[in-house]
Amino acid sequence: MRQTIIALVTGTLFGAGLALSDMINPARVIAFLDLFGNWDPALAFVMGGAIIPMAVAYLISRRLRAPILHTQFHIPENRIVDRQLITGAAIFGAGWGLAGYCPGPAIAGLVFGNWQPVVFVAAMLAGMWLHRLTSDM
């Protein structure tokens, strides 16, 4: 129960951060990716700002035996860079550059009254489902 509340609070905080930094705006994201146009550095500041507290939290977590509300840390231990990782990331990046949406901003952006994120999120779920279907084969 307390972990579910933490999840809701952190999800809300994450969504607020995406809105404050204007990452919910696909035009802002595309302007960062547009190296040959009117380049907008905002996304780099957002990434930099996000990495600072998370890096500190990670260093703290390494000194803790367990998180505050749970019995263990669930941190991925796989360190092998394989073809699947790179292909998946390239496919994701292509879709990201195409419309300027990645999963978080698209979902956070559902509340601004425009229809585009609804279409994007529906297609994204279809893509996830397609991956599950094809990886089971």
Binding site: G17, S21, M47, G48, A50, P67, F73, P103
Partner: peptide, 30 residues
């Protein structure tokens, strides 16, 4: 967009991920 606003938004995102990790032990992967 004012770079400080972008940075502040990023800090909120990082704080969210930090709290999730330290309280629940989970990675904030959306």
């Amino acid at each position: 967009l004012d770079p400080l606003t972008a940075l502040a938004g990023g800090l909120l995102i990082g704080l969210s991920a930090a709290v999730l990790l330290l309280f629940s032990g989970r990675i904030a992967g959306i």
